[in-house]
Computed example of a mutant assay.
Amino acid sequence: MNVILFNSLAALAYGGVGIAILVVGYVLTDLITPGKLHKLIWEDRNRNAVLLVSANTLGSAIVVTSAILSSDSEIGLGAGLLSTAVYGLIGLGVMALSFLLIDLLVPAKISHMISDSEPHPATWVSASAHVAIGLVIAAALT
């Protein structure tokens, strides 16, 4: 019974860290894109913004899941939670950096296309980079 209780509390704790990373990812994405994501997504129903936030969420979840799976149970719950948070933040930072680099290197500004009401193919480039970065960071953890 103690194992079930401990594992239940650990799952809740890891869930809390995962939610925190996803919230930070949303805020970070909001900071690097023009306009307010809340308005773009829920009021304007902007597909470009939805795609970018969805990809960021998936990339973040991939990193957090891999960090949880790679945390050694012998190091303890606290250290496992800390490593999950650190790796999650590293993943978010690298995703933000890739967004900014792509935006810098392409002829048009992806950051402005995301706030455009018309779906734009360049948003897929940035969204794919978010998921790809999540996979790369996840692979580095295994």
Score class of each variant (00 low, 15 high):
P34R: 13
A140G: 15
V136P: 01
V53Y: 05
A61H: 11
S115F: 08
L5I: 13
I114G: 00
S128H: 10
S98L: 12
I133E: 04
V53N: 08
G78R: 08
V125F: 12
V50G: 07
G35F: 06
V63N: 01
H120R: 04
L77N: 07
L100E: 07
T123C: 12
S111P: 01
I68W: 07
G134A: 15
A85P: 00
A55L: 06
W42A: 00
G91V: 04
G93M: 01
I137N: 03
A55N: 05
T65R: 00
S98H: 03
V3D: 15
L105K: 00
S126H: 11
A11P: 09
L31E: 04
E74R: 14
L22T: 13
L37V: 05
L105A: 01
G18T: 13
L101G: 02
V50T: 05
V131P: 02
A20C: 12
A96R: 03
L58Q: 05
V86R: 02
L51R: 14
I133M: 14
I90S: 02
I68M: 04
I133V: 15
A127M: 14
A139R: 10
A67M: 07
L82F: 08
G18N: 10
L37R: 01
A20V: 14
D30T: 08
L92K: 04
S73N: 09
R47D: 11
S71Q: 05
F6W: 11
S117H: 05
I114N: 05
Y87Q: 02
Y14F: 15
K109D: 00
H38Q: 10
S71W: 14
I114M: 03
V50P: 13
V27N: 02
T33P: 01
S71T: 13
Y87N: 10
V125S: 07
A13K: 06
V131R: 11
P121K: 02
G16T: 03
V94I: 13
S115P: 01
E118T: 12
L31F: 15
P107G: 02
T142D: 11
L12R: 08
A127R: 10
L58F: 13
T142K: 04
D116K: 04
I75K: 07
I4V: 12
L40N: 07
P107R: 05
V50E: 03
I75N: 06
S71P: 00
W124D: 01
N7C: 07
V17D: 00
S111A: 03
S98G: 06
S54Q: 04
K109N: 00
S117Y: 00
A11M: 04
A127E: 13
G88P: 08
N48E: 12
I4R: 02
A55Q: 05
S115N: 06
L52W: 10
N56H: 14
I4Q: 05
T33N: 05
V63D: 01
H38F: 05
H120C: 07
I68K: 09
L135T: 11
L52D: 05
M1D: 14
L97T: 02
V24Y: 10
V64A: 03
L37H: 08
V125P: 00
I41Q: 02
L22E: 10
K39S: 10
A79K: 12
L92D: 06
G78P: 09
A140V: 09
A85T: 00
S73T: 14
